[in-house]
Simulated assay, not measured.
Amino acid sequence: MQSKIVRVHNVQAFKSETSFLFSYRYDEPYFLFHFLTFFSYFSVRICTCHLFDPEFSAHLIHRELQALVAFLTLAVVKVVKEETWDGFVADMLLFAKFFLVGIALIVDLNLSLWFMLTFLVIYTFTQQPAYMGLGAVAQLTPLQLETLLTEGGTSRFWLVEFRSLVSSTCIRTSRTLPELSITFANKHISFGVVDLGLFPNTAERFGISLGMPDQLPTFILFENNEEVSRFPEMHSSTKVEDITKKRLCRHFELDKHLLDYISGK
């Protein structure tokens, strides 16, 4: 029985890694505008290189190489520490912005200000898209959730994520529940998502404060029509680093639910 769970976890890990390549649309405005902004530095650099004296050019190249080495070092550290690719992408874009603004400041103050203004505009009008990859997660309206909980269905348990895609934390953790569902979804337990950005009145019904960003996302495990547990706890706060597959699996005892299903309990 334990070997079955290990095999399932291995399959889940393989799917999670391979699905990353297909979980984003890189023609999304968020990625497209960032790409164009970063690419514009190289265009400016090439077009203006003849204006710099040899000493300044050597100094600039030295700083660019330092920034590149530092960026690659941070990338190695983050790819080891980050559990989700969404968080890794967000962190790398943030680091790249700092390095780009810093290098641009060496070239010209106005160029640095232009990049800062451009990133501010991108942040204002676009956002990192949520994960759209593999998973067995149902997108639920409040009415559908109420129906499932009150009238029952094929699943005894429902693990529901209440989130809002206006929240950067919810976007960064948007792949966590789908990847858990690949391993743990069965006739015993199902997974669902309710978007509080579309249905804000639902938050009060389940004791979630939209005025506290640290409460988003909130995960609640229901057994029939009763709340069994939630993460984070009511009136407590959590950080994005706390929302991991391992933490949620332990908190909601998903391994135990899977064992119960396999053993026919």
Results as ranks from 00 to 15, higher is better:
residue 265 K to W: 03
residue 160 V to T: 04
residue 145 L to C: 10
residue 52 F to Y: 12
residue 178 P to D: 00
residue 145 L to P: 02
residue 150 T to A: 11
residue 224 N to W: 02
residue 98 F to G: 04
residue 38 F to L: 15
residue 51 L to K: 14
residue 74 L to C: 11
residue 108 D to C: 08
residue 179 E to Y: 03
residue 221 L to A: 02
residue 99 F to P: 00
residue 21 L to C: 10
residue 202 T to V: 12
residue 145 L to T: 06
residue 126 T to H: 13
residue 61 I to V: 12
residue 227 E to V: 09
residue 71 F to M: 04
residue 84 T to C: 01
residue 130 A to M: 01
residue 254 L to P: 00
residue 20 F to C: 05
residue 216 L to D: 08
residue 170 C to P: 07
residue 244 T to K: 11
residue 54 P to D: 07
residue 248 L to R: 08
residue 20 F to K: 07
residue 265 K to S: 04
residue 153 G to T: 09
residue 65 L to W: 13
residue 53 D to H: 12
residue 24 Y to L: 09
residue 250 R to C: 01
residue 167 S to L: 09
residue 234 M to I: 13
residue 108 D to G: 03
residue 186 N to A: 00
residue 119 F to Q: 05
residue 126 T to D: 14
residue 167 S to H: 09
residue 133 G to Y: 09
residue 134 L to K: 15
residue 223 E to C: 14
residue 99 F to I: 01
residue 142 P to K: 00
residue 122 I to W: 10
residue 207 G to T: 12
residue 228 V to E: 12
residue 58 A to H: 06
residue 11 V to I: 04
residue 96 A to F: 02
residue 125 F to V: 13
residue 144 Q to L: 12
residue 123 Y to N: 15
residue 222 F to H: 00
residue 183 T to Q: 11
residue 128 Q to P: 05
residue 165 L to Y: 10
residue 261 Y to L: 11
residue 40 S to Q: 06
residue 5 I to V: 08
residue 190 S to F: 05
residue 255 D to W: 00
residue 32 L to M: 06
residue 263 S to W: 05
residue 162 F to N: 03
residue 240 V to P: 07
residue 195 D to N: 09
residue 244 T to N: 07
residue 216 L to C: 05
residue 72 L to N: 07
residue 81 K to E: 05
residue 6 V to P: 04
residue 77 V to M: 15
residue 146 E to P: 05
residue 86 D to N: 14
residue 99 F to H: 02
residue 20 F to E: 03
residue 202 T to Y: 12
residue 215 Q to S: 06
residue 40 S to D: 03
residue 84 T to K: 01
residue 191 F to W: 11
residue 74 L to R: 12
residue 71 F to P: 01
residue 86 D to L: 13
residue 18 T to F: 05
residue 245 K to Y: 08
residue 157 F to W: 14
residue 47 C to V: 13
residue 209 S to A: 13
residue 80 V to E: 00
residue 86 D to T: 12
residue 16 S to I: 02
residue 183 T to A: 15
residue 118 T to E: 14
residue 72 L to I: 02
residue 159 L to M: 05
residue 25 R to G: 12
residue 71 F to A: 03
residue 48 T to M: 11
residue 236 S to Y: 05
residue 56 F to K: 11
residue 89 V to N: 07
residue 197 G to C: 10
residue 126 T to A: 14
residue 85 W to K: 15
residue 5 I to H: 05
residue 56 F to D: 13
residue 93 L to I: 15
residue 134 L to S: 13
residue 110 N to T: 15
residue 94 L to E: 01
residue 2 Q to V: 06
residue 188 H to D: 01
residue 90 A to E: 07
residue 263 S to Q: 07
residue 260 D to Q: 07
residue 109 L to H: 14
residue 7 R to H: 13
residue 190 S to P: 08
residue 70 A to T: 10
residue 187 K to I: 00
residue 8 V to F: 12
residue 229 S to P: 00
residue 115 F to P: 15
residue 263 S to C: 07
residue 204 E to F: 08
residue 241 E to H: 05
residue 154 T to N: 06
residue 11 V to R: 04
residue 193 V to H: 01
